[in-house]
Amino acid sequence: ALNRGDKVRIKRTESYWYGDVGTVASVEKSGILYPVIVRFDRVNYNGFSGSASGVNTNNFAENELELVQAAA
């Protein structure tokens, strides 16, 4: 299972961040479909780089994520 702070690569092909590595911000335990919230260094097309207006978190299912580096 994934944990907060883990570095993960995104495998959801239609995602803006496909192939990117993000950090797990939190994992919901309530049984929702996309329980893993991942935070990225770059914002998506809703904002400009360096601006706070873009979105830099997204929810994924565990099977859409590949663990790159476990949290220390």
Rank of each mutant, 00 (worst) to 15 (best):
E28I: 09
K29Y: 07
R4M: 12
Y45M: 15
R9F: 06
N56V: 06
A61D: 09
N56L: 04
V43Y: 15
F60P: 00
Q69V: 08
V24F: 01
A25I: 15
N63Q: 10
A71L: 08
D6Y: 01
D20N: 04
S53F: 08
V24E: 01
K11P: 00
S26M: 06
S49H: 07
G54M: 04
V8K: 00
N3R: 13
I37Y: 06
P35M: 12
I32N: 13
V27T: 04
V27R: 01
Y18C: 11
Y16T: 02
A25Q: 14
V24G: 01
N44W: 15
N44H: 07
N58G: 15
D41I: 07
K29C: 14
A61M: 11
V8I: 02
A52Y: 07
E14L: 06
T13M: 14
L33M: 12
A1P: 11
V68K: 02
G47L: 03
T57W: 12
A70D: 10
N58Y: 06
V36R: 00
G19P: 01
K11T: 11
Y45C: 15
W17I: 00
S26L: 11
A70F: 09
S53I: 10
Y18M: 03
S15Q: 01
L65A: 02
P35H: 07
V21E: 04
W17Q: 01
D6N: 02
D6S: 03
G47Q: 08
G54F: 04
S15V: 03
V43F: 15
G22D: 02
A61T: 05
F48L: 14
V36S: 00
E64N: 02
T57G: 04
Y45S: 15
T57S: 06
E62H: 12
V55I: 12
E28K: 11
Y18G: 02
G22V: 02
S51L: 07
F48I: 14
F60S: 00
K7W: 06
L65Q: 01
E62D: 08
Y34E: 07
A70P: 12
F60E: 03
G31F: 11
V21I: 11
D6A: 06
V68I: 10
N44Y: 15
R9V: 07
V43D: 14
S51C: 15
A72T: 13
I32Y: 08
T57K: 05
R9H: 03
E64Y: 02
R39E: 12
V55S: 08
F60R: 01
Y45V: 15
G47T: 05
D6H: 01
R39Q: 13
R12N: 15
E62P: 09
T23I: 13
Q69T: 12
I32K: 07
N46E: 15
F40R: 01
S26E: 14
E66C: 11
A72G: 10
A52T: 12
A72L: 10
V27L: 08
V43A: 05
A61F: 09
L33C: 14
K29T: 14
T57L: 07
F40K: 02
T13R: 10
N46G: 10
V38E: 01
A71R: 06
G54A: 07
R9W: 03
E66G: 02
A52F: 04
W17H: 02
L33V: 11
K7R: 10
S49L: 11
E14T: 11
S15I: 03
V8E: 01
F40C: 13
A1E: 10
Q69Y: 08
V21A: 01
E28V: 11
A61C: 15
D6L: 03
V21W: 03
V27I: 12
T23R: 04
Q69P: 09
G31M: 11
N3F: 07
N3I: 14
V8W: 00
S51A: 10
E64Q: 04
Y34S: 05
L33F: 09
D41Y: 05
I10H: 02
G54C: 15
G54Q: 05
A70I: 09
G50C: 15
N58H: 13
V27M: 06
N46A: 03
A1T: 13
L2E: 09
L65P: 01
F48D: 15
N59M: 10
S15K: 02
L33E: 14
L33N: 11
G47P: 15
G5A: 02
V43M: 11
G54N: 03
V38K: 00
G54P: 06
P35Q: 11
R42S: 10
V55M: 09
G31T: 12
G19R: 04
K7H: 07
F48Y: 09
S49P: 15
N63Y: 12
V24W: 00
I37T: 14
K11A: 11
V8P: 02
R39V: 13
S53Y: 06
A72F: 08
Y45N: 15
K7P: 02
V27A: 03
R42C: 15
Y34H: 12
G50N: 08
G47F: 05
N58C: 15
E66Y: 05
G47S: 09
V38D: 01
K29S: 14
Y16A: 05
D20F: 06
Y18A: 04
N63K: 08
Q69A: 11
V38T: 00
E28N: 09
V8H: 01
A72M: 11
P35W: 09
V24R: 15
S30W: 09
V21N: 01
N56Y: 05
A71F: 10
S51K: 03
A25H: 11
S53M: 10
R4A: 13
N59D: 06
K29N: 13
R12E: 06
G54R: 04
Q69C: 14
G50Y: 03
V68S: 02
K11F: 03
V27F: 09
F48V: 14
L67P: 03
K11I: 13
E28T: 07
E28W: 03
A52E: 13
A71D: 12
R39W: 07
T57P: 03
S26Q: 13
Y16V: 04
V21M: 05
I37G: 04
E28Y: 06
N63A: 12
V36G: 00
G5P: 01
N56H: 05
N59T: 07
L67I: 09
L65W: 02
Y16I: 04
G31R: 08
E64P: 01
F60M: 01
V21G: 01
G31K: 09
A72I: 13
Y16F: 14
I37M: 13
N44R: 07
G22P: 04
E14A: 13
T23P: 00
A25M: 14
V55Q: 07
N56G: 03
V38M: 00
D20W: 06
I10F: 00
S15A: 01
D20P: 00
S15E: 01
G5I: 00
G19W: 05
Y34W: 08
D20G: 03
K29G: 13
S53C: 15
V68E: 03
E66N: 00
A70G: 07
N56K: 05
N59K: 06
V8D: 03
F40M: 03
Y16W: 08
N46M: 06
K29M: 12
G22S: 02
T13V: 13
E28G: 09
A1F: 09
Y45I: 15
A61K: 07
D6M: 05
Y45W: 08
E28P: 04
R42M: 05
D41P: 05
W17R: 01
R39Y: 11
G5R: 02
F60G: 01
G19M: 12
G47K: 04
V36N: 02
V68L: 14
Q69R: 08
R4K: 13
E66L: 06
E14R: 04
V36P: 00
V21S: 02
R42Q: 12
Y34D: 06
D41S: 06
V27H: 12
G22Q: 02
K11N: 09
N44T: 04
V38Q: 00
S51R: 01
V43I: 12
V43S: 06
I10E: 01
Y16P: 05
